[in-house]
């Protein structure tokens, strides 16, 4: 049992992080909090990916130490170096998450300029007042 927990606990931590982020994205009514939740969510996925590249037993970062030598190629042991692929993928995913955050912040600026608030309830109230144009709430099942 202990062994099972030790083998899996890091995945579970990422899942909990993911749930926190997802709840903030769906349940919070403040737009900035939603955005922060989005960041937590994306970061937890990045952590999950990176942790798949870990190798126990003395593996180190995937930078070869004796690359200059002619016979260096024979010395390379796969178990000596971490799996480089998840790192590569997550470099891309980090960039994607930053880019999404940037665009989301830009729309938040537009929203703030228009309504002078970032609380979703207040924005909805303002819009209901200003005209009969109604927007469904995010994840509102009655819609």
């Amino acid at each position: 049992m202990t062994e099972y927990i030790l083998a899996k606990y890091n995945y579970w931590i990422y899942v909990v992080l993911m749930m926190i982020g997802l709840y903030a994205m769906m349940g919070k009514r403040n737009l900035v909090k939603k955005l922060i939740g989005m960041n937590i969510f994306q970061t937890s996925i990045i952590l999950l990916f990176v942790s798949t590249g870990v190798k126990k037993g003395g593996a180190t970062v995937p930078i070869l130490m004796h690359a200059g030598h002619e016979h260096g190629a024979q010395l390379i042991q796969v178990s000596d170096y971490l799996n480089p692929l998840p790192h590569v993928l997550m470099l891309t995913a980090i960039v994607v998450s930053i880019a999404t955050t940037g665009v989301a912040l830009a729309t938040l600026i537009l929203i703030y300029k228009r309504y002078h608030t970032l609380e979703e309830d207040e924005i909805l109230a303002i819009r209901r007042e200003s005209r009969a144009y109604k927007t469904p709430r995010i994840l509102n099942p009655t819609d």
Binding site: L22, M25, K34, A104, I138
Partner: peptide
């Protein structure tokens, strides 16, 4: 902008 923000959140999910 508000519709887009909702789209960003759901689209990112």
């Amino acid at each position: 902008p508000m519709a887009t923000f909702n789209y960003i959140i759901i689209g990112t999910i």
